[in-house]
């Protein structure tokens, strides 16, 4: 998939602090949810959203269609998550799925949830991204396609493949409810 943050639009308009804050504030929570589900680490997730916000401010003036702000920003967060994983690899940290996920949770007793998180973590990056965006960030397919820089059809096909990996025995229609 092409990296959204790397897209180079044509011209830049100045963005005031107030405008930036008003536009970005409602996107921080979904950005954090996306990063948490991608990275399984709350601190790393916050770092990813923070770094994405730096980039967003620098590039916000080039956004001519602010109706596409949410997929644009979540695309930057997704790229940061991809880079966070790369950085961890290069630092020699094993990113295999651990038996116990690093985020402390009083509700880890829910074995089903832990199994599902583990299964999602085993998906490759692109499959995991569409699953998280569709099922956890509750993003419609057309916006999801904008984040992943693919067509809606390609995004749907990837989502179906990922669902099959997660729940091999479950019909797609049932899984999509």
């Amino acid at each position: 998939m092409q990296q959204v943050a790397d897209v180079k639009p044509s011209s830049t308009l100045p963005v005031s602090e107030t405008t930036f804050a008003d536009l970005l504030r409602p996107l921080i929570d979904p950005g954090f949810r996306l990063a948490l589900a991608m990275l399984h680490d709350a601190q790393a997730a916050e770092d990813a959203v923070q770094e994405a916000s730096f980039i967003a401010w620098r590039k916000l003036g080039r956004m001519h269609d602010q109706g596409r702000l949410r997929p644009w920003f979540l695309g930057i967060v997704a790229n940061k998550c991809r880079n966070a994983r790369r950085n961890k690899w290069s630092a020699g940290v094993t990113l295999g799925v651990p038996d116990v996920l690093p985020v402390p949770s009083p509700e880890e007793r829910t074995l089903r949830g832990a199994d599902l998180r583990r299964a999602i973590a085993r998906l490759d990056y692109d499959d995991r991204l569409v699953v998280v965006l569709y099922f956890y960030v509750d993003m419609p397919l057309d916006e999801l396609a904008a984040v992943t820089r693919s067509s809606a059809g390609a995004a749907r096909a990837r989502l179906y493949r990922a669902i099959n990996k997660l729940r091999p025995g479950v019909a797609i229609e049932e899984a999509l409810r």
Partner: peptide
């Protein structure tokens, strides 16, 4: 999936303020 990740999601109280301040 919601319940699996909500289980490990910490409170995001104050997160927008922290992110915007640093930005």
């Amino acid at each position: 999936i919601h319940s699996a990740f909500d289980d490990i999601a910490p409170s995001t109280l104050g997160l927008p303020e922290r992110v915007l301040h640093s930005a």
